[in-house]
Simulated scan of single mutants.
Amino acid sequence: MDDARLQAKTGRTGLQWIEYLEKVSGKDINNIAHKEMALLVIDAGIEPWWAQGVTISVEQQIGRRVVGQTCNGTYSASASKTLNGDWLELFDKFVAFMSENYELIPIPAAGEPRTTESEKWRYWKIDLEDGSKVSINCSPKSAKDGTPKGSFGVSHDKLESLESRDELKSFWQELLGRFAKTVTVTK
């Protein structure tokens, strides 16, 4: 995350966060574990989601990880798409679309896809033979003009390389785009 956005959302730049974390922990930044760092940021009054963003940004600045790399050393590819329509209808259409297209995923499946749900989220998930996992979530998104929208987010985790992350990020962006072309908007 760039420093301007980090400062706008958290009140500090990456360098200021490094200085703060070293001061409150009494440790060199390279000796503060990911979880401890995130908890210190939360203790500073930052929401948990943004605390993770701060932690990841700091870890990237100090060379502990690169963009797309998780704290355990694997990589994660992500993609997102927002579509007009009722989010529950969109999710049902997505499940039908994926039942016909999940074999396009460039890594063979290690089982059948599954769906789960909560009040505010729907998930389509699949485990793959290389040990990676895909979770695609769908949630409602409010629009300024009142048009109902559904937001899809792909998280393809436990990838072994930056190259596979980049390839799979492109794949998921393309697949979400292909799905978007199949959707008929209902009002």
Rank of each mutant, 00 (worst) to 15 (best):
D92F: 00
A33N: 08
V154Y: 06
E129L: 08
T74F: 02
K93E: 14
A109I: 00
E36M: 09
A143L: 01
W87Y: 10
Q60N: 10
T182C: 09
R65G: 01
S164R: 12
L90H: 03
E112D: 13
R5L: 07
E117K: 14
E22P: 09
L104P: 01
E59D: 12
L176D: 08
A4R: 12
D145H: 06
A143C: 02
E117L: 02
S139I: 03
S80D: 14
Y123C: 15
K23N: 08
D127A: 14
G14W: 01
F94Q: 01
K27I: 00
L175C: 09
L162G: 03
T147R: 14
Y102W: 12
I29D: 06
R5S: 11
F152E: 04
C71R: 09
A33D: 11
D28H: 07
P140G: 03
L176S: 08
C138V: 09
W50C: 04
A180W: 07
V67M: 06
M37Y: 04
F179G: 03
W17E: 15
R114F: 14
G68H: 07
D28L: 03
T55Q: 14
D145L: 05
M1C: 08
V154S: 11
E119A: 15
E22A: 07
H34E: 05
K81T: 01
F94H: 04
F97R: 02
Y102L: 01
Q60R: 11
R114D: 12
D166K: 13
R12G: 02
Y102F: 15
D2T: 00
G63Y: 10
I29N: 10
S155L: 15
T186I: 03
L39Y: 06
G73T: 00
D127C: 09
E47W: 04
L6C: 14
F94M: 03
G68N: 05
K120T: 13
S164Q: 12
D157K: 12
Q173R: 11
C138N: 13
Q69I: 05
I46S: 03
S132T: 04
K133G: 04
S57V: 02
K27R: 06
W87H: 01
T182A: 03
G68R: 10
S155Y: 14
G177Q: 08
I18T: 04
